[in-house]
Design a binder for these strands. Structure first.
Lengths: 321, 321
DNA sequence: CTGAAAGCGCTTACAG
DNA sequence: CTGAAAGCGCTTACAG
């Protein structure tokens, strides 16, 4: 319609900087507009062997991963990359299936978010045909990974409560498979072990949700739990624990201090407002995407990038009675 | 490597039911395994003019849309469809750009989630080249849409509070551009207007977040707000309002009842537990995707599918003092 | 500055 | 049951 070859048309549509006569350029653009031309990314991708897309796999879409994805999206948008989203639902087979699917779609890179013992079955770094970056602690050695220092975060929480005079603690934990949580707990232990006074630490484990925290904490209180400070693996677990404490007439923070991790937006509007370790999920996502882009670009990337958590002290943690 | 033509290879790889000699089939499968063959979805898509993917656009990833996406994902997985995710961040230009991008990628259909006055600039149904389904109220007539009856939901909330003896209400609203919220408010008004007793309704508007709810409610209380029942557009706003009430010494639920919408997972662990209208976001997502698949398949689809919200009464709403 | 042509990796009538 | 060949819609050396 513009009276030019497809080669020329392609050049004006796809490469803004390619030298094309101004008049020709105009004719092509006008024709494209009149025809309602929409270029075909599959054909483009096929011939360039590049899809300008990345696969993002998360276990689920709760607030922590949602924040991570928003960070990934922000960086991806800036880089002109489209996100293919996959929810693994903590299922290893599903996760492997998503990897295969994304590989078939020829994503330029893969971002795998997790905080637990999620494996990439049979996928070592050398077997993975495309750049892959992990976000959050997980059991896949050899891939570049972006993490937040959970040991330091746990350490700092314990230090905070210790400085408020607390000596009897309860830690609400899932099980050992969850690296993030295991490390937070380890950090707490590291601090306590180097302390110069006696302390008590009860671990309530098998806690994966508000509901678990609520019921386990309820039982523990009936069993005479003596802790004056409760450390929950996440704000969600803290919320469940606070409900159980309140229901048992143990007022937070007067009778028991509570601290969580993640610092969800809502936590500051709880009453008492919840003290929480802020884990920079969005920042991790952004950094992960940028690392991936560098790897796709053939650059050397750090094998481990570590961000810091920051304590946000609020009303739920006050000096021990 | 299997000593067959690409046509035959394609048939065993891509069409399980195509008649191919058993021995040939085995040779192809073995060769594919040995070669680590991964089929190219871009080439496949190009030749079939079908990408087996759908574009999903949401304003942001907070809990409501996260639940919606989980529903969409569940149905999409079942249908063998991959999700391309786009966050519009409430920005119309960004949204339009995402639509264009998804069109270039030749998604088989588009799912647009919103609850506000988000437009598809210059895209009428006839101009949209692919099947498109809307989820949540929005300003784009002519597209099939999946909604929850927000007027009925608002009506029911008012009825609930009325039956508890409340006659003085405050409604926390964003502005008129938000269809979901406007309808919830309308439902409240509809109920009250047909009531047979005097009542008072204060509207606090301009509320888009926990923070807004917290500060506007704080001001209103200082100004002598007389409401014994607060209706918030979402649980998030309810949380902010509850914090302001607590800080002002107006105990929930003894002095003031509070009700929200959305019924986030956490709401039941607040103390008092928050009474909330459960909006079936996941169900909306699932139904939206299924409607889209039907439309892609060339079937006739309903122009409007309406789900019902369900009231979950909890401790935050009790009889008026 | 422009075009002819090959190639990206599949699918699918069509013929045998 | 199998293959040769055209075609999907781009990009990009190569030549002019």
């Amino acid at each position: 319609m513009a009276g030019v070859s497809v080669a020329t048309a392609s050049r004006v549509i796809a490469k803004a900087d390619y030298p094309v006569a101004a008049a020709t350029r105009v004719r092509v653009i006008e024709a494209a507009g009149a025809l309602g031309f929409v270029r075909n990314a599959m054909a483009r991708g096929l011939s360039r062997s590049r899809s300008d897309s990345v696969g993002v796999i998360v276990p689920a879409l709760h607030a922590y991963y949602a924040a991570m994805i928003e960070g990934i999206d922000e960086a991806a948008t800036r880089q002109g990359l489209t996100i293919l989203l996959g929810l693994s639902r903590g299922d290893e087979a599903k996760r492997e299936q998503l990897v295969t699917e994304f590989l078939e779609r020829r994503v330029d890179g893969l971002l795998i978010c997790a905080g637990a013992d999620d494996h990439l079955p049979g996928r070592t770094p050398t077997e993975m045909p495309i750049p892959t970056v992990l976000i959050g602690q997980q059991a896949n050695p050899g891939f570049p990974i972006v993490v937040t220092d959970n040991v330091a975060a746990g350490y700092e929480v314990a230090e905070h409560l210790w400085s408020l005079g607390h000596r009897a603690f309860a830690y609400l934990a899932p099980d050992k498979g969850w690296h993030d949580f295991r490390d937070r707990q380890a950090g707490v232990s590291v601090f306590l072990k180097q302390a110069d006074e006696a302390y008590k630490l009860d671990v309530l484990d098998g806690i994966y949700s508000e509901a678990d925290a609520f019921s386990r904490m309820g039982e523990a209180l009936k069993g005479g739990l003596a802790a004056t400070a409760v450390i929950a693996s996440t704000d969600r677990h803290a919320l469940g624990a606070m409900a159980a404490l309140t229901d048992a007439g143990r007022w937070v923070p007067d009778a028991v201090a509570v601290v969580g991790f993640d610092n969800y937006l809502s936590s500051q509007y709880l009453r008492p407002a919840l003290t929480s370790m802020h884990m920079p999920a969005g920042e991790m996502g952004r950094l992960g995407l940028e690392t991936l882009v560098a790897a796709i670009g053939g650059h050397q990337v750090p094998m481990r990038s570590e961000l810091r958590a920051t304590l946000v002290a609020r009303g739920s943690s006050v000096p021990s009675p």
